[in-house]
Design a binder for these strands. Sequence first.
DNA 1: CTGAAAGCGCTTACAG
DNA 2: CTGAAAGCGCTTACAG
Lengths: 352, 352
Amino acid sequence: MKKKELQGVKEIARRANVTIATVDRVIHNRPGVSEKTREKITKIIEELNYQPNLLARRLASGKIIKLAVLIPAVTAETEFWDAPLRGIRRAETEISPYGLQVSMFFFDLNDKSSFTAQARAILASPVDGVVLAPTFVAEAQAFTEDCNRQRIPYVFIDTTIPGQANLSYIGPPLFQSGYLAGKLSTYALREASQLLVVNIATAIESYTYQQTEAGFRAYLADHHLPHPVLRVDIHQTDEPSVFRTLQPLFGDSSTIDVIFVTNSRSFLVARFLEKTDLPRKPLLIGYDLVQENAGYLTNGLIDFLICHQPEDQGYRSIMTLYQSLVLAKPIDKEQYMPIDIVTRENQAFYRN
Amino acid sequence: MKKKELQGVKEIARRANVTIATVDRVIHNRPGVSEKTREKITKIIEELNYQPNLLARRLASGKIIKLAVLIPAVTAETEFWDAPLRGIRRAETEISPYGLQVSMFFFDLNDKSSFTAQARAILASPVDGVVLAPTFVAEAQAFTEDCNRQRIPYVFIDTTIPGQANLSYIGPPLFQSGYLAGKLSTYALREASQLLVVNIATAIESYTYQQTEAGFRAYLADHHLPHPVLRVDIHQTDEPSVFRTLQPLFGDSSTIDVIFVTNSRSFLVARFLEKTDLPRKPLLIGYDLVQENAGYLTNGLIDFLICHQPEDQGYRSIMTLYQSLVLAKPIDKEQYMPIDIVTRENQAFYRN
DNA sequence: CTGAAAGCGCTTACAG
DNA sequence: CTGAAAGCGCTTACAG
């Protein structure tokens, strides 16, 4: 009577007096097992506190899990998206040995129809999970409805749409991010100061900008700061458009001491400041350590960049699907990124 | 003639007209293979751009890889170490399915001999890799020499010793961290201001404090700020000792407008400020979002906490060994953490 | 409803 | 110096 110490399904099978095939059926809730043996096996599984060996599982099932990613293409103007892309690639190399595969689909931030076309391409072939930036609200909703119908889980990255069935949102806490910008503003406030909020984007209606600005104003209100807040929306992202809009605001008697740019295009404002002769440089707060911003941070025209670890956002978006699909872990619906303050002094060590 | 598409070692073996055992020998550079077949197999491996299946490898070799961690015990006074510990635990659960095992060894920050005793305990049983905080220089060196001799790789966390054979250092860039503190100081500087650097620790001689203070002073020098910098070393970390030392510095005519505490014990200074009636609260800059500091950040007695993602330091230390030992990846000798600025406004989202 | 067998891509003795 | 075989802990048809 030698009882070898068996492991896993074998040990369960031995104790239950069945074969491992039956054990496997119970583990995966597959039909074709009598209630009696199902109960017996379930009990043993609990007794043993059985944890499946994931390596063996992935090795045995030849299946490849397919993930798709739908984000803006990286251009000179939208360099921001390079960082999430890097994070996605890093996650991919990390999990590809375990039988996962990631396909990229890029859309044009200036063209809603490109989003729809790419979304369609994703659903044209089999896919087990999706990461997307739901920049265009209506188009994104049409897509997620299809996903819901086909029971394909999806994760929002960088932007969110409230009230969706997304597995998770991975991105900044927008309101609080603007709130911090409000705080940073105070370092430059004098009695007569005015503040200026600048939105430079083609999709100004975005939930993102509203939330961010609301947070910014909330800080000032909470601290009873009476300084007026101006705001300009610049719909075209080219340099002439930006200059044309800003010039009238910075006359000789301008008291704008703080400029808050609500996205990564603060370098356009810095460029304006660079070419304009002002008696006193306003404090300039922007978003994201993209290359052009980095230069202006170094030379002092931009004072603060608020960042939300874009590389990590990309990484986490993939890993979240991995954890849900492969490890069956529960997932937090909101995964807020930290609100990082990047200055000239710490920028070299920032993980972008 | 049906040629099935074989994978991995099988395909290599088929092409080389040998068995997979021989292929395995070549892959692992084991002896007992004729030069001729070794060459033939090596060539095929290159042609195929063969990537071993790590799952299969770990599954087949029953071996368990053992890691040991040597860090300070978490106490009320050294709560900082709770965060790296959490990161280590997170990494452990992530990699334990792949046959890794982590053992913890804690030493007492007030007792060098406890470090040595724990170091000895680590080497008493088989171990494949070590993470350690080399707080006590001489003791740590004695230990790492043993590791060198036994060819056990080790990673430094949070603190480093220059010129060692450590696989990697994972922690803050100290000088630059102090430099940033210098920058933050300037928000409170008036013409007559003095600045105060406070070291509160039992091991004042540490390389860490020297570097940090050097960076702090360097910022002021680089920007031609003529304000005097005082410095006090407080060797005992109890409240009375701290109060006794600080009191004389904050007389009625004190012009100290900035206090920079070089480690996580800024809450002790905050407590002093809380109980002392000063005409004008100095700007207080400290390190690490430990609980006691968090409270003073919220109520405004501490203005800035500089943090270096301690949880992530722990996580990375283990993952670095994993990547080296299991995936045979090359490792950066310096893995500098970002220099994060935590304020009342963004503290809720900080990943500590 | 249950089982016997092959196989995932490797490693590990052991035999010759 | 090389090979034949068993096995790691699972999954997947297929048979009954």
